[in-house]
Nucleic acid binder design. Structure first.
Lengths: 337, 337
DNA sequence: TACCTTCTCTGCATCGTTGCATCCGCTCGT
DNA sequence: ACGAGCGGATGCAACGATGCAGAGAAGGTA
């Protein structure tokens, strides 16, 4: 049993309250007592019980980050930024992984047993339905990452449409005449993917190029496996693409690998661009062009919003748009341009 | 303010205790009351306050997984296994990232404000000194991942020496005559790295090959960047290696990329093998041979140990050795063998 | 009828901490 | 000399939940 304030108080021959005062640096405590109490604290190795403290204060300084999957480096990198920025603000950021399981996601966000445990939640949703969104108590401090489908809550996102348009336009600028889009979900209308598809179509339209449904290649999840499979599918088309806009870097890296297996020259025969700017893309062969959302910025904005919400200062739900950048590396630089 | 037991009790016209009984399915509660209380619970949307419950019960069912860095896919993949296995056991596994900062690691493990918050800790240490280990109260339920340097605690690890020996032997078997080892820390004696180096030397000895200190290439951290830099260094040697055993897949992938830039054929001129079996290695060009520790097995073993420790059943500290496997892919298959 | 069980339901104390109010003793101003 | 003021230390209650013991009421037995 770890020592409590009571134990320390007994050891030092003072009241519990005085020990608490010393621990927290509160009030005026005479130097003499301070020293005596501190000695007892050190002696017994006292550590405050965060559970009890949080219960009393109604505040835990714990924030949960709910993510679909950590083995997507995008989330891993975002997590690092969140943890660092959270620490700077005095929060301990804990990560909670849903494994892309909507059921579990629902549990974590909705059932919210953790309401009392965490001061707030930052959620990157995958499968929340409208109905489920409406079940979330607004008393709850929550910030969502991603498309702002649900006006009751704060959101942080990038302009996915504009970014997707820029990526597609870049491929077209490199001389691609048939640009495919890879990453639409076959059944669920994942709003991020839908928005990116919008941007893709906008770019085609702007360049006066036709929209060919064959060139919209579905993927269940944003993984290498799916990217590899999709690439196989794309190459079986009667008129295969010469440019490939992937909705995530992982998809792109999977596609890249398959292209290599099939003997397709990248970027010579096929120019590829991804989305997310994960570290892996800097080390692939060829290196991967991508859209780079500013993860640090996103973390900062999300935590700022959440801090306000927790403090109850926030008024209207807000949507914050984070900056992004087009990074041109090897995979999209076509020869002769 | 979320509703408490008191609020529900008032609404249902029963005692607090009875509501608690209904919530927990305790004791015998008449069907009539059960229904009435349940109605009030639903009506008010009552959620138990985990803080209060944990404080009273002295048990939170929360387990923390302390890791150096999540953007190393090895840890991300391990984390997934831990979260899944933990959930199965009724634990919520929270992740805590130290960013490889020994100071922070020390804080998380030693200061252990969280003693009361978490029932137990699973720690993958990076920079704990002997002295620091000794400061950890044994009352604390902790399981370490990695070399069992500290006999006071439970450990789960693989046989790094044997695995390293197998990796090195494999390269030699492929016809390599000068095998380099990449990943020893230049200053700190990271025990995992040291053990892997032992295995490397053992394999050389067994093959009757000389040990050349020039072929032991240091790396500060197990990252792609470091791997890339080390590869440059290796290629500047008077007598460069024709085989490369990297202490992590990330190092190997960085080295692979640099090899490509330098125009070195892999595996033709240089055979490469990594360590960790991260997903990325299945999709690199060429695909990466590696040592694959059984992550699921490790997660299971760590949680089993921890569960015992928490229950106070554990007797002597134990070290559990997890299985591993040599995966031969493209990067180490030399032509003509 | 008297007594004992059994079944429900309840009140009290408690987990470890902090907010609030108070209390003691001393100094100070007039 | 006396009350006000203040620094220093304390006790009580409470955060929201559960363990425990016990109170009534209902039912069973001799």
């Amino acid at each position: 049993m770890p020592p409590t304030l009571r134990d320390v108080a007994a050891a030092a021959g003072v009241s519990i309250r005085t020990v608490s005062n010393v621990v927290n640096g509160y009030a005026a405590v005479s130097e003499e007592l301070r020293v005596r109490v501190q000695a007892a604290l050190d002696e017994l190795g006292y550590r405050p019980n965060l559970l009890a403290r949080s219960l009393k204060q109604g505040r835990s300084n714990l924030v949960a980050l709910v993510l679909p999957e950590l083995d997507n480096p995008y989330f891993a990198e975002l997590t690092r930024a969140m943890v660092e920025e959270g620490t700077r603000r005095g929060f301990t950021v804990m990560i909670d992984q849903t494994n892309g399981d909507p059921e579990r996601e629902r549990d974590l966000v909705l059932r919210a047993d953790r309401t009392a445990l965490f001061d707030g939640l930052i959620v990157s949703p995958l499968g929340l339905s409208d109905e489920q969104f409406h079940e979330i108590p607004t008393s709850h401090a929550v910030v969502f990452l991603g498309e702002d489908d649900h006006p009751k809550f704060d959101h942080v996102r990038i302009d996915n449409s504009a970014a997707a348009q820029a990526a597609t336009a870049h491929l077209i600028g490199q001389g691609c005449r048939r640009v495919a889009a890879l990453g639409v979900h076959p059944t669920v209308s994942h709003s991020t993917a839908v928005t990116r598809l919008d941007g893709y179509r906008a770019a085609l339209a702007e360049a006066g190029m036709p929209f060919d449904p064959d060139l919209v290649i579905p993927a269940d999840r944003f993984t290498r496996d799916e990217g590899a499979a999709a690439m196989h599918a794309a190459w079986k088309l009667d008129d295969p693409p010469d440019g490939l806009f992937c909705f995530s870097d992982l998809l792109a890296l999977g596609a890249l690998r398959t292209a290599h297996e099939l003997g397709i020259a990248v970027p010579g025969q096929l120019a590829i661009i991804g989305f997310d700017d994960i570290d892996d893309g800097r080390f692939s062969t060829p290196t991967l062009s991508t859209i780079s959302p500013d993860k640090r910025w996103i973390a900062t904005a999300a935590l700022d919003s959440l801090t306000q919400r927790i403090a109850g200062e926030a008024t209207e739900p807000s949507t914050i748009i984070a900056p992004w950048e087009l990074l041109v590396r090897e995979s999209s630089q076509r020869p002769g341009t």
